[in-house]
Design a protein around this nucleic acid. Structure first.
Lengths: 202, 202
DNA sequence: CCGGTAACTTACTCCTGGTAGCTTACTTGG
DNA sequence: CCAAGTAAGCTACCAGGAGTAAGTTACCGG
């Protein structure tokens, strides 16, 4: 079997095993066995267990990035772009095994080397969001744009996690929540106070 | 040394070591040595390495919960409560070693038992936020309130992570970003439209 | 003084991530 | 068609750390 072929096969199996058992419980021996290959081959290809996880995560993140970017490409307005991006995000999470999607969001417990690879792809996602924001709010300072991008990413990740406990929430509903919140904020929620135009206290 | 005393001491050291080296890299032998005690004592007290992490996380989360709850107690309005809560959150993250605060947010790489303990305490935080929201938006469906609470928590966690890369961002500035975003949403950012006081759609 | 209990230790086992070195099999040039 | 090189693959091992069994000290009530 050729190298790229084997590599993809290994990633497929590893993704499956990690999702089933979690990173720690998954053993390299089992992954190797299920691939139908011996353990040193895994190390030949990925260097370490962390390297294998990194590769899995990198692949997923790349796919996620492409899916959201593509979805946002055809948008007519910033608002529309945000909506399409959110929808694509949650739909993607549905298609892929949610357990690994969650693993893909856990940078810190794994060693620095692996975390770097994950963070790099992750930052591309933040960057995409940030550029969207910058496009329709050019006067907002860069720092604030970054912060807002992080906020949106964090919101998405957390809502994904929440959906794992609430399977009845559809991807569209989830996207809707994030969208409404992001667009209008909470102020729109408060019905009793009629004077909504005032500034918040710093 | 008495049991509760030892326990606290062990947690202090473990917190430190986990924060320094990360969960995986930290060894029970080293923690035991730094405590000045032998390894079986750690197992006597916490059952397993995961148990030790769970205990650390539980303690931190409890403290965080109390800190934010206390901060929000004296608020005059929901808006004020949100602001105080956010500020307390980020200030807490500053005081405690940020690395462990981050570890506390990584449930999935550790076995189910530990993850459960973490999620349980975490949900209390979501619950606190949700009750705040419910208080000033009683007509919003419970499901949406939950989603919004998750969004805010996710935003806070992610912004914390971001601050680890951007030490120049103060706790107050971070709280400010989350506050502004949560309150006004993004629509307020778009500068070409001068009419910000109008009703949002919905 | 003695029995019991509770903090504590030494000295292991075993599992799993990781590696050294060998074997097979396929391609390529003479 | 064969030899030589290269790439895929394997067996057998090591190291280190999680977790444990059994024994030891020290304190405290009777």
């Amino acid at each position: 079997m050729s190298r790229p072929e084997r590599e993809r096969q290994m990633l497929d199996i590893a993704e499956e095993v990690f999702a089933e058992q979690g990173y720690r419980a998954a053993s390299m021996d089992e992954i190797a066995e299920r691939v139908g290959v011996s353990k040193p081959m895994l190390y030949e290809y990925f260097g370490s267990k962390d390297g294998l996880l990194s590769a899995c995560v990198a692949r997923i993140r790349t796919d996620l990035y492409e899916a959201t970017q593509e979805a946002m490409a055809g948008a007519g307005s910033p608002e529309d772009a945000l909506w399409r991006g959110l929808l694509a995000y949650f739909a993607f999470m549905d298609r892929h095994n949610r357990a690994l999607a969650v693993i893909a969001q856990q940078p810190m417990l794994i060693p620095a080397a692996a975390a770097d690879a994950i963070e790099a792809t992750r930052r591309r996602q933040s960057g995409l969001t940030a550029s969207l924001l910058a496009a329709f709010a050019p006067d907002v300072p860069a720092r604030a744009v970054e912060a807002y991008a992080e906020i949106i990413i964090g919101a998405c990740e957390r809502v994904s996690l929440w959906r794992a406990r609430r399977p009845e929430v559809t991807a569209e509903e989830a996207a809707r929540y994030v969208m409404d919140f992001s667009w209008q904020g909470l102020r729109a929620l408060a019905p009793p106070l009629p004077h909504r135009g005032d500034e918040p206290p710093l």
